[in-house]
Amino acid sequence: MTVQAPAASTGVMPGWRRLLAVAVPLLVLAGCGGGAGGGSTTEAGAVPFADCAGLTTAPPASTAPPDAAAPPTDGVSPDATPTGTSLPAIELACFADGTPVAVDAIRGPAVINFWASWCEPCRDELPALQRLADRTDGQLHLVGVNTWDDRDRAVAIAEDLGLSFPSLVDRDRALLLGVERVGLPLTLFVDDRGTIRHTYEGTVDDVTLAELVQRELGLPVAR
């Protein structure tokens, strides 16, 4: 299932009706944990995520990726869509320390997963992504992109699930829109040239991740 962040209203209405139209959605978001508008915006404090150092160089233990000119293979599911485009030229802050990271400079093999605390399917798949990071042990970059979210809630989810892979912060959905998508969950499979070899829309599990990493990035994953 793909979950879309709630869209802001674009209607214009006079007087008290306009005030209610603005105030009520904000209260609802604050109560149900949706979007980046609710909760604390504090940037300080320890986080479980690793720093983002090294994301712009290929993992030292990686194997050679498949030829980028090779034709795309059939998708694992109807939601899987090969792309073959480069990562967008967007700069995001590292969740761990705020260091800016040029997304288009990330070099794979890499798996980039968009997630948020308000996205239930994202919470379901995050443990599988952490297991992928553990099983590949330095052979690929596992990168989270915390999208349109509240920092404190994101940290709480990461602590509950035992996440440690590096994450970037995308409160404005710049990267999500840059890859021409609007919903979560979403996972990109990126080669050593920064090319998106495959875009997977929907919740991933251990088997799907292992199959896609081996097929698209040429990296066997221990089961």
Rank of each mutant, 00 (worst) to 15 (best):
W148H: 06
T85W: 01
T10F: 06
A222G: 12
G75W: 06
A174W: 06
A154P: 00
G54I: 06
A68F: 04
P71W: 05
G35W: 02
T2S: 14
E180A: 12
L27G: 13
A30R: 13
R153W: 02
P166A: 06
A93V: 01
P25K: 00
A128F: 00
G31I: 02
L217A: 01
A102H: 12
P78F: 05
L19M: 11
A58W: 00
E201P: 03
G202L: 03
L168Y: 06
L186D: 11
T63N: 07
L29E: 09
P166D: 01
A69M: 07
C32Q: 12
Y200F: 10
P59N: 09
E91T: 15
D192T: 05
S9P: 15
P48L: 04
P6V: 02
D104H: 13
G37C: 11
G178A: 06
L186M: 11
L177Q: 13
V182N: 10
D192F: 01
V179L: 09
A44I: 11
E201D: 07
P60D: 08
A69L: 04
G45H: 09
T81I: 12
L219F: 08
A44M: 07
V190P: 05
D149K: 05
T41H: 11
A7P: 04
V101T: 06
G75K: 12
L129D: 04
I157Q: 03
P220F: 11
T136M: 00
V190C: 02
L219A: 05
A69T: 11
A64H: 08
A156K: 13
N113F: 02
T42N: 10
A50S: 10
T203D: 00
R135K: 07
T2L: 15
S9F: 15
S117P: 02
V76Q: 13
T147Q: 06
I196W: 00
T187R: 04
E91D: 08
L217Y: 12
G33C: 03
L55Q: 05
L126R: 03
A116W: 02
P14M: 03
L55D: 00
F189C: 00
P66V: 04
E43G: 04
C52E: 08
L87Q: 00
T10G: 15
T2G: 07
T208R: 15
D205G: 15
G183C: 08
S117G: 05
P6Y: 10
L175V: 14
L184H: 05
E125K: 07
T199Q: 13
L186E: 13
A128P: 00
R17W: 15
R197A: 00
A21W: 14
A96M: 01
E159R: 14
A7I: 12
G162H: 04
L217M: 04
D137Q: 09
L163P: 08
P185M: 01
R171G: 13
F49Q: 11
W115Y: 12
L168G: 03
V111L: 02
T187P: 09
A110Q: 03
T83M: 09
E91H: 07
L140F: 09
A93T: 03
G35E: 08
D206E: 14
R193C: 00
G75R: 06
A61H: 14
L161S: 15
V28I: 15
V24H: 11
F165I: 10
A64F: 01
D160Q: 14
C94N: 09
D191E: 01
S40Y: 06
T199D: 10
L177G: 15
D79T: 14
E43F: 07
V76T: 15
G31D: 06
T63H: 09
A93Q: 10
L168D: 07
T56L: 04
E43A: 08
G144Q: 03
D150A: 10
